[in-house]
Computed example of a mutant assay.
Amino acid sequence: MKSEIKTPLILGIAILAGVIVLSLSLSALDSQPQQTLGNTSDESKTSSNPEQKINKLGYKKAPELVGISGYINTLPDELQKKIHDQVVLYDIWTYSCINCVRTLPFITAWDEKYSDQGLLIIGIHTPEFEFEKDIENVKLAVTKYGINYPVVLDNDRKTWHAFENNYWPRKYIADHEGYIRYDHIGEGGYQETEKVIQDLLQERNKSLGLDASSAKELVKIDEFESSWLRTPELYFGYDFVSGRNQLGSPEGFKPNQDVNYSIPESKQLHNFYLDGTWKNLKGSMMLISSSGSIVVPYSGQEVNIVTAGDANLSISIDGKTIDSSMYGKDVGDKGQVHVQEPGLYNIVKTNSSENHTLEIFVETPGFEIFTFTFG
């Protein structure tokens, strides 16, 4: 009997070993800092040796902040003076982006830890939706997330384009001479990013003849781990759906028209369905009828919505009022969510990825829905 299972057992062990090696290799690759293109020779890397000359040939200089329409926690002239001789972390973000929001605890912690050692963080707020261009809305978000570093409003994406950027969030770190030495797209990579901050601060302080000693301990904050099989982001504005139409209602998108939507009996995972009359707008759907609903069969452990308009939303899961064990942080009594300021609301949170059918019922004409995002 044992001889009959010996070959499959050996094969299974070999496969398992291969998977482990591959996983370790991918993990090692993932842990590497995402540096911008430049000179990657040993001479070009950050060094703790004060005698070693850093070869910066091939590294790009950080561009000027251009087309800025507003300043928070700073003034234009003040910010220009602050940048001089500082290690600068440029964080390109927007306040209704859940991926951006998840990075903020780390960024604010770095600001608190290193701002008096030569680190300057500049939040470049580049909006995805029109309501994010309003400086008062951005100020509310800055207060909500405890941001004390300078934030500039890049409403026309001129600085975004100057950085040749295409992503939210994205972090660039420039050394004290203005060369971009590190580039990271998206969430994660926090330990690698902080190590780069430490190395560049040490390099700066040695170059300027300052005390180069710095703590090597890293900020410890639990990272959110998204499910790989989660539902992708769902967009409700007709201008955002090219190549990814996830509207399951048979009436479809009709730009700038009021459409009386219906929900079919058969529904597909990762699609959304509407009931009631909704106006198709460039970035959103606006409720026109006295009431309406949104149904989403989804997969994930967290559900977030981006909305505008003062409204009370009733949340149901699988045909029943959402259980308190699944409440997102913005859900109140009896499964109700009061949305007021335009922005991001967390409505479902579970301990693991699950499949459910979510329904949002609303009785407030003028309510707008922009996106659903899942974790």
Rank of each mutant, 00 (worst) to 15 (best):
residue 68 I to Q: 03
residue 92 I to A: 09
residue 62 A to N: 05
residue 96 S to F: 11
residue 68 I to E: 05
residue 53 K to N: 10
residue 107 I to R: 06
residue 99 N to M: 07
residue 73 N to G: 14
residue 82 K to R: 11
residue 36 T to W: 00
residue 41 S to V: 01
residue 108 T to W: 02
residue 33 P to E: 07
residue 33 P to T: 05
residue 47 S to V: 13
residue 54 I to P: 00
residue 35 Q to E: 13
residue 38 G to P: 04
residue 60 K to M: 10
residue 47 S to C: 11
residue 104 L to G: 04
residue 96 S to N: 12
residue 87 V to P: 03
residue 99 N to S: 08
residue 45 K to L: 15
residue 104 L to R: 01
residue 83 I to Q: 13
residue 91 D to P: 01
residue 100 C to N: 06
residue 44 S to G: 06
residue 80 Q to W: 00
residue 40 T to Y: 10
residue 92 I to Y: 11
residue 108 T to V: 13
residue 82 K to V: 00
residue 54 I to W: 05
residue 48 S to M: 10
residue 45 K to D: 04
residue 90 Y to K: 09
residue 86 Q to P: 00
residue 52 Q to R: 15
residue 69 S to K: 10
residue 71 Y to T: 05
residue 98 I to D: 01
residue 55 N to K: 11
residue 46 T to D: 03
residue 49 N to Y: 08
residue 68 I to K: 06
residue 80 Q to F: 00
residue 83 I to C: 01
residue 77 D to V: 14
residue 77 D to F: 11
residue 30 D to M: 14
residue 94 T to N: 09
residue 58 G to K: 04
residue 74 T to A: 11
residue 100 C to T: 04
residue 39 N to C: 12
residue 35 Q to Y: 12
residue 85 D to V: 00
residue 47 S to E: 03
residue 36 T to R: 11
residue 90 Y to W: 10
residue 88 V to A: 07
residue 50 P to K: 09
residue 47 S to I: 05
residue 89 L to K: 07
residue 59 Y to L: 13
residue 75 L to S: 09
residue 34 Q to Y: 02
residue 108 T to D: 03
residue 92 I to Q: 01
residue 93 W to V: 12
residue 93 W to E: 03
residue 108 T to M: 01
residue 52 Q to T: 15
residue 51 E to D: 15
residue 52 Q to V: 14
residue 98 I to T: 12
residue 79 L to S: 04
residue 86 Q to V: 00
residue 110 W to T: 03
residue 84 H to W: 02
residue 39 N to S: 08
residue 99 N to V: 09
residue 47 S to P: 06
residue 82 K to I: 00
residue 73 N to T: 09
residue 79 L to W: 01
residue 71 Y to F: 14
residue 80 Q to L: 14
residue 88 V to S: 04
residue 96 S to T: 13
residue 98 I to L: 11
residue 76 P to C: 09
residue 106 F to C: 02
residue 87 V to G: 03
residue 88 V to R: 05
residue 84 H to C: 01
residue 72 I to T: 04
residue 40 T to R: 12
residue 72 I to F: 12
residue 72 I to P: 13
residue 82 K to S: 13
residue 93 W to Y: 09
residue 105 P to A: 07
residue 73 N to I: 10
residue 31 S to I: 01
residue 61 K to E: 08
residue 50 P to M: 08
residue 79 L to M: 04
residue 63 P to M: 10
residue 106 F to R: 05
residue 79 L to P: 01
residue 48 S to T: 14
residue 107 I to A: 06
residue 97 C to D: 03
residue 75 L to D: 11
residue 49 N to W: 05
residue 35 Q to D: 11
residue 100 C to Y: 02
residue 103 T to A: 15
residue 34 Q to R: 07
residue 31 S to W: 02
residue 110 W to N: 03
residue 93 W to A: 13
residue 104 L to M: 13
residue 71 Y to L: 05
residue 103 T to R: 02
residue 33 P to V: 15
